[in-house]
């Protein structure tokens, strides 16, 4: 086959793939931009003749989307911070130290990765209730809404995956630098902070993005633990929006588009961390 023909076939298939991947989002955007008068099922006009932002304004006024956004951001930041901290604290000794009980710790970490979160859903919920980390506590908590954010972040943040991931990236690091630091009188904590963490920054960024994706998209846990709209995260808020405005898709579509923007921007800015996460966490570290 001539080269040109091959290239044309390649680009035709590629174009179809791109349409398949992006089409639903474009349709969502087109729906969100349709004026109220238009028949949204009038699919002859895939793109509205007179696009309008009125649906965006309406959804923003009628639904506390901004509050959902704040909750999602706060929960994600907490989840990332906590996840990085415990992953590093566990990954460092697992990669570098000899201590009694190491195989047991490994076993615990691996087991926590195998066991599905759904199994502990009910007891974990009861525990969070007792700890005052949900909004069913009756009276307003002193720490509200921080306690609720923490309660939402914990299941995402406490993960064996992160611990093992950091251990793997540390295992690939040469030991000479830290040994020198330890000989020069650094404590293990100082070595970790000043020598090791700067060296594994890419791994930390990757884990942060991974945690962000998990926490940003999480639906099951927040839908159970949170009852008051002012504590909804975006996924819970969107589902509520959809059931409240099921007859007005334009408004729901506008809300959905708004909720996508932060992640989309981050993805376009930090693509390589989004994509590398998987490869590092792949078959072998």
């Amino acid at each position: 086959m001539p080269k040109a023909a091959k290239s044309i076939i390649f680009w035709c298939i590629a174009a179809l793939l791109v349409i398949a991947a992006v089409g639903p989002f474009v349709w969502l955007l087109a729906t969100a931009l349709k004026p109220q008068g238009d028949n949204i099922f009038d699919t002859a006009a895939l793109w509205p003749a007179h696009p309008t932002l009125e649906n965006f304004a309406e959804v923003w006024q009628k639904v506390p989307l901004g509050q959902y956004l704040i909750n999602s951001v706060a929960v994600s930041i907490l989840a990332i911070g906590l996840n990085l901290a415990i992953s590093v604290l566990a990954g460092y000794p697992l990669a570098r130290m000899r201590f009694t009980g190491k195989p047991i710790v490994f076993g615990i970490v691996l087991a926590s990765m195998m066991i599905p979160f759904q199994v502990i859903l009910i007891p974990l919920y009861q525990l969070m209730l007792k700890l005052g980390l949900t909004d069913y506590t009756g009276g307003q908590s002193l720490f509200s809404p921080f306690n609720i954010w923490v309660g939402l972040a914990i299941p995402v943040a406490v993960s064996g995956f992160g611990m093992l991931f950091i251990r793997q990236s540390l295992a690939g690091l040469p030991k000479a630098l830290e040994e020198a630091a330890l000989l020069d009188g650094c404590t293990p904590l100082q070595t970790l902070w000043y020598i090791i963490l700067p060296l594994i920054q890419p791994a930390l960024a990757t884990l942060a993005i991974f945690t962000l994706m998990a926490s940003w998209g999480e639906f099951l846990w927040p839908s159970i633990t949170v009852s008051q709209p002012q504590h909804y995260t975006l996924p819970v808020g969107l589902v509520a929006l959809q059931s409240a405005f099921s007859s007005n898709w334009r408004v729901v579509a506008a809300g959905t588009i708004i909720s996508m923007v932060p992640m989309l921007v981050l993805f376009l800015l930090f693509q390589r961390f989004f994509i590398r996460g998987l490869n590092d966490g792949g078959v072998k570290g």
Binding site: A85, I86, S87, L89, A90, Y92, P93, M97, R98, F99, G101, K102, V105, I108, V109, S112, I115, V119, I120, I122, P123, L124, Q126, L127, I154, P155, A157, V158, G160, M163, P188
Partner: peptide
Amino acid sequence: KIAWLFLALPIGCLAVFFFGPLLAA
């Protein structure tokens, strides 16, 4: 001692928020 000082928080978190609820389940 040093290793377990590091591990206290992560293993504690796993114990309280994962394996405790698992036993409860």
